[in-house]
Design a protein around this nucleic acid. Structure first.
Lengths: 252, 252
DNA sequence: TACATTATGTTAAAAATGAACAAACCGATA
DNA sequence: TATCGGTTTGTTCATTTTTAACATAATGTA
């Protein structure tokens, strides 16, 4: 019965991410406070929880925090990016084959992508692992040399791989954008892949948070003519928006 | 000066994984206990640390624990596997191109692989991300459909990709092994890739912990004739070892 | 300079914790 | 069944930790 109690506690904490002594007391009204304390001590020894004042956290929960922290450290404009990601999910047709580019905004998009029948292609390890946590989408990962910067596969073999597949919709990101300079990024090999993807895709959706506007990076990978939809946040400059719409690009 | 203090504390905790109030007091002799407490509260708000009795942990540190727990949950025979991985590192030549199979033993191997000039190829996302944490090896990831089970790429495109590359040494794992049944695994597509890798590799090193011995899985991917080295743990049955050595396989 | 805001120190009261001991429980054995 | 050893649980209490509240100092700002 000790074991079943430990299991119960463990289950509760895993489920809720944490628990206070009061909560656990309610869960197990017939045991004393001290017993619960001792139980948590044991679970702490097993690295299942970590005890804090008034209760304990599940280590898994804290694992999530780590991740969150990690993502946020390298990412600014988080709420804008999430907003863009959210809007983008509404543009996706069912059943299609989607390419998802690497980048923080696209990663948020991957996270929000409903659990439906898609086939997703990506060259980003982060996007792939994110999607694999869900149940449904089939994930195809492009092969190639893995770049340490941003955990994407690049190189000639990646391009060749790309040759063999169809892309319905491409969800792209960019490092820089301006009306004159088009869409640009910082590495040649990345740029090559982005270009190739855009060339193959029937529908191209570009995610563009306002921090990217009027920045130019060395390698241009596409211009406005190849973009079907541009999803932006609420801080996006109106002037540019109007200019874009006059060129028949749907700005969302 | 508040910020620099926060930085100092953060740094200390990130480095040591945790800190007690006493330690921090020693680090910062000119501030009061209360200030340190407040600082830790702030860092807790930022998800950098989590406070416990007497001090705080770095969330990153706990992240590691989670991982450890995660690995151990799905993995038995941990010490044997680490032993095997350790031995295997000594068999590796400098400068070669190594294929690393998926599997928990091979993952430990990847973790222990010295930070030298190699080029590593793998179809396992776990192996790849593990290696990318280090500085040096170039990592090539095979493309293809990603299998949710074990996070490896599989399928015909993976095989085609494999055609294009050279493999000097292959570090392989197996799910089952017996003298009669050879090396076997549970999925056809996995088996196809393992076979292809072994066919290409100049030197094949098989990691085999004793829990696999005399287990047979449906798909045989190779037999003893293709294996150059077999790295086993100390519980490996002596009889089988002798039999193998009589067949000219180096058992380590 | 004067004021507002923030940061820090001090203290005391509240609380959480762990240690020690006692009671209950359990299984095995005679 | 009685009894013994071990384990688990409960209770109490002293200790330590924590927090809240207030006072003081520092800092920024008009």
């Amino acid at each position: 019965m000790k074991n079943s109690r430990l299991e119960q506690i463990k289950e509760y904490i895993e489920k809720h991410g944490k628990a206070t002594y009061d909560e656990l007391q309610e869960l197990l009204p017939d045991v004393s406070n001290m017993t619960i304390r001792r139980d948590l001590s044991m679970l702490e020894e097993e690295n299942v929880v970590i005890r804090v004042r008034n209760g304990a956290y599940s280590v898994a929960e804290i694992g999530k925090k780590t991740e969150e922290q990690f993502v946020q450290r390298f990412s600014y404009n988080v709420s804008e990016k999430k907003e863009i990601a959210e809007k983008t999910t509404k543009l996706i047709d069912f059943g299609g084959c989607i390419f998802i580019d690497s980048g923080s905004t696209t990663l948020y998009f991957a996270r929000m992508l409903p659990d439906d029948k898609y086939c997703v292609i990506s060259n980003s390890l982060n996007v792939a692992t994110e999607l694999l946590r869900k149940h449904s989408p089939e994930v195809v990962l492009l092969g190639g040399d893995v770049s340490r910067n941003n955990l994407v596969t690049i190189g000639s073999s990646t391009l060749r791989f790309l040759d063999e597949i169809n892309i319905e919709t491409a969800i792209m990101s960019t490092t820089g954008f301006s009306l004159e300079g088009g869409f640009s990024c910082g590495a040649q090999q990345e740029s090559a892949i982005k270009s190739a993807v855009i060339a193959k895709a029937k529908k191209v959706i570009m995610l563009l948070d306002s921090s990217k506007v009027n920045k130019n990076m060395p390698y241009i990978f596409t211009d406005l003519d190849h973009i079907d939809y541009l999803v932006v946040d609420k801080n996006f400059p109106k002037k540019i928006k109007e200019e874009l719409e006059s060129r028949n690009i749907k700005v969302i």
